[in-house]
Design a protein around this nucleic acid. Structure first.
Length: 764
DNA sequence: CTATCAATCTGTGGGTCCCG
DNA sequence: CGGGACCCACAGATTGATAG
């Protein structure tokens, strides 16, 4: 590419010869004047595409002028990488062909290597192509009017070139003003086509503001950039690229969303979408106007929903059709680690029935890909198989309102609708005229996203590639002590001891202050105990004040035909464990101290004891006659926050049935240092954390009257890496301000001076 | 019912221009 | 100075139509 650019300079700009056919001299003032007449002075405002208009404009031009136009087109297309080489070739040969001459075959200047492009010029370069082309023609005409020796000087000296080019009429805002100097003098100019980016880089790395740089001529910017590049390269000792992820995040921070307006209700945004769609589908397909805004509105609503917003990998897509109206509009939430398209994989999707009477919130599967590989029938079977394998793994994460089958009716006869119906794993119908309140929608979605996360985790942990697209729970990968140790802050002996204790006592409680990684550890320990990273065999619930026996064991729930007896989460889990007695199962109860244990467990209080497992202890449950027991292969893991003062003293019943394991803050361990360093935090910041937070913890521990060891600040607050572009110091301050200080205010709510004092000490 | 296709969309850009 | 409008090219997505 650089060679081609150089050849262009020597052969055409200086020599005046045609690039593709050097026997002819076409880069002449006369031909440039002709193109100026036909093209620059003769704009075509009609609605045709660029090439058609150009053809008409050049209708009466000489063959030489047409060939020159083809080569000009070549020149302005040398830089952009956002236009494919094939497209570039097509345009160039087409223009050349208007001259009634075939482009000599096997052009070295038209191969992919030359036309592949060197940097994106963005859409504007295409949109404003006519401006760029006019600018090039005008400038070259001006160049030719100069003395030959001056022409030569300009074309061989980068500084002279840019100073001359920026003087040409219409130069401001032309991307060629950035592109041409780089093409001809790649060592002196940046590979940047945008003035805005140049200004952005300079403003970031210098003391001058954007506005100051904006007022400078292009040559100043380029000189300053060259200096900057040399300085940075000396500092870093390696070549730099301003568009490398590392540097780019520094000078071009991603735009942040401003959450200014009040959040509308889900009911409003969905109703608005339905009404706009209903109105629009009477006419020809288009998503402009009200329908488009309604689609954007619901997309934004979902994107800003906390459980979606806090997971970067979740993407929202909305569709009402493509080319034609779909009978089944949908709004999907996809995790891009599993799938980026509704054509494959598992995802969350709202499906709207054709008559708009009902919207189903579903967990569903992409079908298009499957159909293309295994045919309609095979795909249908596969989807049913996947749905059946997935349901048990997610059941306990889903809100009770969900129904775990594919019995939905989209009231449409299209194949798309039928495939959605077949692929449904779980669903929740929302009646169009009676949509739930925001809080309920959020609750449903949160539980569904939680369930979805299990599937994605199983998928990513099993290290299967997307082609398999569906997690295979039957082949959950082995997970052993070593795997657990990799991520945990615990010593080998501690974990071995814990696992041994857990195997014999069956029930363990992990307790500790906030931020010691209890939740994180619980999953790894569970996998280590069962020997496989198999989410199907790990249950999880979180207790709260209103958690009840009915939720946990069994109870009557409202259903279509009045009330029906339903299994609680734990009983359902035990029944699954019963079916596979050779395998271990783990049930995790987060915040176990927040629920009223004897009220929630009822008679199970007795049955969970390690020596009361097995069928001989089976007894009927409160609401039914069938006998129940907790199988031997079910292990319980409770999580308890020792700094939670909202609860009463842990009662004796709990003490007697669970073994207690204490997790402590591990700020002074080598592991802690390693994790932080690998996150890009400097050693000095690590020392600062260890000193200051260590001192704080010492104070907390010694404050026996109010606090004590159970209130220490845990290490995991600092285990999240700095965000892109954030310095180690900013990161530390952010964690302190957003995580640690709020906690301290709670701890010392009656001693604000303590908080004040520690705010100073922590922030230095 | 299935397989394939044509038509037309959206998403995504290292974009600019212009308004408030 | 932020944000919307602009509306090109490409790649890929989506869906109804059509033929088998």
């Amino acid at each position: 590419m650089y060679e081609a650019a150089n050849a262009w300079r020597e052969q055409s700009l200086i020599g005046g010869k045609s690039l593709f056919d050097p026997s002819e001299t076409i880069w002449t003032p006369e031909l440039l004047d002709e193109l100026d007449q036909k093209f620059v002075q003769n704009p075509d405002e009609s609605g045709l595409n660029f090439l058609d208009k150009l053809k008409a404009q050049l209708e009466t031009a000489t063959p030489q002028a047409k060939r020159l136009m083809a080569e000009l087109m070549w020149a302005i297309n040398l830089f952009p990488s956002n236009i494919t080489p094939a497209r570039k070739r097509e345009m160039i040969t087409q223009i050349w062909s208007w001259s009634a001459e075939v482009l000599p075959a096997s052009q070295p200047f038209l191969v992919d290597d030359v036309l592949g492009g060197i940097g994106s010029a963005g859409t504007a370069f295409n949109t404003h192509r006519w401006r760029e082309l006019s600018f090039l023609i005008t400038s070259l005409r001006a160049l030719r009017a100069l003395d030959t020796s001056i022409q030569r000087a300009i074309l061989t000296n980068g500084q002279k070139f840019v100073e001359w080019l920026e003087q040409q009429p219409g130069a401001s805002n032309r991307q060629l003003l950035n592109i041409l100097p780089f093409l001809l003098f790649p060592d002196e100019f940046e590979r940047i086509s945008s003035r805005a980016d140049k200004v952005g880089i300079l403003a970031h790395f210098s003391s001058e503001q954007k506005s100051a740089w904006n007022n400078r001529p292009a040559s100043d910017l380029d000189r300053a950039l060259l200096e900057l590049r040399r300085r940075l390269e000396t500092e870093k000792g390696e070549l730099i690229d301003f568009y490398s992820d590392d540097l780019r995040s520094q000078w071009k921070p991603s735009s942040q969303v401003s959450g200014k307006s009040e959040r509308p209700s889900f009911r409003e945004v969905l109703t608005r979408l339905l009404e706009a769609y209903d109105t629009a589908r009477a006419g020809p397909f288009t998503t402009s106007g009200e329908l488009g805004s309604a689609m954007r509105a619901i997309k934004q609503w979902l994107e800003n929903l906390p459980p979606v917003a806090e997971r970067e990998t979740l993407k929202v897509k909305v569709s009402v059709g493509q080319g034609g109206w779909t009978k089944t509009p949908w709004i999907a939430i996809l995790d891009d680690r599993l799938t980026t398209s509704t054509q494959r994989g598992i995802y969350i999707v709202f499906l709207i029935s054709e008559d708009l009477s009902v919207t189903y919130l579903t967990l569903n599967q992409g079908m298009t890909d499957l159909v293309s590989t295994m045919g309609q029938r095979g795909a249908a079977e596969e989807m049913v198989r996947v749905a059946e394998a997935t349901r048990p793994a997610i059941a306990e994460f889903l809100s009770d309102a969900f129904i775990l089958n594919n019995d939905i009716d989209l009231k449409s006869d299209t194949s798309a609708a039928r495939n959605y119906e077949i692929g449904t794993i779980a669903y929740l119908p929302l009646a169009g005229d009676d949509l739930p309140e925001n809080e309920h929608v959020i609750e449903y979605l949160t539980s569904l996203i939680n369930a979805y996360k299990q599937i994605v985790d199983a998928h990513t942990m099993s290290d299967k590639t997307i082609e398999k697209s569906v997690p295979n729970f039957d082949e959950a990968p082995a997970f052993g002590l070593e795997d657990a140790l990799q991520d945990l802050f615990l010593e080998r002996e501690e974990v071995e001891e814990l696992l041994l204790l857990w195997q014999t006592k069956k029930n363990v409680i992990l307790q500790g202050p906030p931020g010691v990684g209890k939740s994180f550890a619980s999953q790894r320990l569970a996998y280590a105990l069962i020997g496989a990273a198999d989410p199907r065999r790990v249950g999880y619930i979180q207790f709260h004040q209103s958690y009840s026996y009915e939720d946990f064991v069994q109870g009557y729930r409202p259903s279509e035909e009045g009330f029906s007896l339903r299994e609680g989460k734990f009983v359902a889990f035990c029944n699954r464990a019963l079916a596979e007695p050779k395998k271990r199962f783990v049930f995790i109860i987060d915040e176990i101290n927040r629920g009223n244990l004897s009220r929630i467990l009822g008679e199970l209080m007795l049955l969970i004891e390690p020596d009361k497992r097995g069928s001989k202890w089976a007894m009927p449950l409160a609401y039914s006659d069938t006998e129940f027991h907790v199988p031997d292969n079910v292990h319980l893991l409770g999580l308890m926050n020792t700094a939670d003062r909202s609860l009463a003293v842990v009662d004796y019943a709990l003490r007697r049935r669970f073994a207690f394991v204490e997790l402590t803050a591990r700020i002074h361990t080598r592991k802690f240092e390693e994790v932080l360093i690998s996150n890009g935090v400097s050693g000095s910041i690590v020392k600062v954390i260890q000193n200051r937070v260590g001192a704080l913890n010492a104070t907390i521990v010694s404050d026996i009257a109010n606090l004590g060891p159970g209130f220490e600040i845990g290490h995991s607050f600092f285990c999240a890496a700095p965000v892109a572009g954030e310095s180690g110091e900013d990161w530390y301050k952010r964690i302190v301000k957003t995580e640690i200080l709020p906690l301290l205010r709670e701890y010392w709510f009656d001693a604000p001076s303590n908080v004040e004092n520690w705010t100073q000490r922590l922030l230095g």
